[in-house]
């Protein structure tokens, strides 16, 4: 099995890690995960498709920005602790510079009616994209009759009652995760 591992095929240095993840970071709007997959699996072949899926599983299992977590893992794998710093920094540095520029423009011109109108238009689209994303993720859930009520409870607790999210997540994870645990035992 060892010879099929992507580790054997190529071993990027720190510079390659930095620039490869920079490209990924600057490629996508509203999330760059698909670009990370294309770079890691198809273009550079630093990971096999199976390795990517397994790592993504862990990155999505843990909280936090998934693609940053993924960069940490890939960086560590090829260049140890230094790689685990360089890869996520590469991922974030370019987009952060652009965001700083936009933030400065906003500081200066954000109060103009024209800018406010434009941002309201973009916010409306962003809001629609969130609804669409929730819909799509809801469709992908296994055991909808059992688990979708938890989505409704979260909306009630967060959007309506405005409960603090850490408590809602702890309680929700205990209930929904507990239910899933029992269900997994039966099948």
């Amino acid at each position: 099995m060892r010879d099929t591992s992507a580790t054997e095929r190529s071993r990027p240095d720190l510079r390659a890690l930095f620039f490869a993840f920079s490209t990924v970071g600057l490629s996508g709007f509203g999330g760059v995960l698909p670009f990370a997959r294309r770079m890691l699996v198809e273009e550079r072949q630093w990971l096999t498709a199976e390795e990517f899926n397994a790592l993504l599983g862990l990155c999505q299992f843990l909280p936090g920005p998934n693609v940053v977590n993924l960069a940490v893992v890939v960086g560590k794998r090829y260049q140890g602790a230094l790689g685990a710093v360089v890869a996520p920094v590469g991922l974030l540095a370019g987009p952060m510079l652009i965001v700083f520029l936009l933030a400065m423009l906003y500081d200066r011109y954000g109060s103009l009616p024209l800018a406010q109108g434009m941002l309201r238009g973009v916010a409306a689209v962003g809001c629609g994209l969130l609804f669409a994303m929730a819909w799509r993720m809801g469709l992908a859930i296994k055991g909808k009759a059992l688990f979708l009520p938890f989505s409704v409870l979260v909306v009630a607790a967060i959007a309506w009652l405005r409960w603090p999210m850490p408590w809602v997540m702890l309680l929700g994870l205990a209930l929904a995760g507990g239910l899933a645990y029992i269900r997994l035992g039966r099948s």
Binding site: F150, S151, V152, V154, V155, I158, M169, A176, G178, R183
Partner: peptide, 11 residues
């Protein structure tokens, strides 16, 4: 946990 987190994220 993976199964349980999904509906929470939707909400």
């Amino acid at each position: 946990i993976s199964l349980g987190v999904a509906p929470l994220a939707v909400g």
